[in-house]
Amino acid sequence: MNSNDKLIEFRDVHLGYGRKNVLSRISFEIERSDFLGIVGPNGSGKTTLLRSILGILRPTAGEVRRAQNAVIGYVPQRDTIDPIMPFTVFDVVLMGRYGRLGLFRRPSILDFDKVQEALAHVNIEDLANRSFRDLSGGQKQRALIARALVTQPDILVLDEPTNGMDLASRSSTLELIKHLHKDDKLTVIMVSHLLSDVANYVNRIAIVEDRYFQVGRVGEILTDSNLSKLYGVPVTVGDFQGNKIVVAGGKNV
């Protein structure tokens, strides 16, 4: 990939596990400073696509091209991390530096400083010595975002960052992600099944479903007919004080 603004490019990609095909003929690209939301029903292949973006899953056909030296900062679903050991928030965020250290090297003062910076950046520097497992959902999410930030990423990839959060935590987490995109100019990819979250924060949306994969601007993709076809129930998209609302079941907005 040349030095233009494309960070990741999918060209006619097929994804699956063994003989099972999950997604076919996917083509799209992610450019620098993009904010892409990936949505779709449960089991539609969002995680499969995410794993391919992360480079964990190789395509069964087609090509995924990445800009040279592009660093991905990954924020997994926080529920997948359930440590028995009392790792402090500092310990957890420091793990984000391990990939830069290489074999045999131990973290240095520089790495510790980067961790402090990242903690301050997501406003949890006061939680540095707290046990990660004792944090609230919103605090854990911030710690995992800080861990992704210390990798000094070109792309921040978040998997269901607001899943299971209360309204206040959800809103503050989304505002933080918006800030990282807008002010820090980070390219962001966010997977979510919460359409309203995605609709009101991202620039572009990818609808994931085998034989029905679409990518485009929010207004183009998030239409009643598109979503009704995707979810198999009548869906209405409306506006409330400038925010998009998505309602299922044929109700008026």
Partner: peptide, 17 residues
């Protein structure tokens, strides 16, 4: 550090190489 990271969160460790 490798054993700890892979034990704590193997998926993210994989994304870091």
């Amino acid at each position: 550090k490798e054993f700890i990271f892979v034990s704590f969160d193997s998926e993210t460790a994989t994304t870091q190489g």
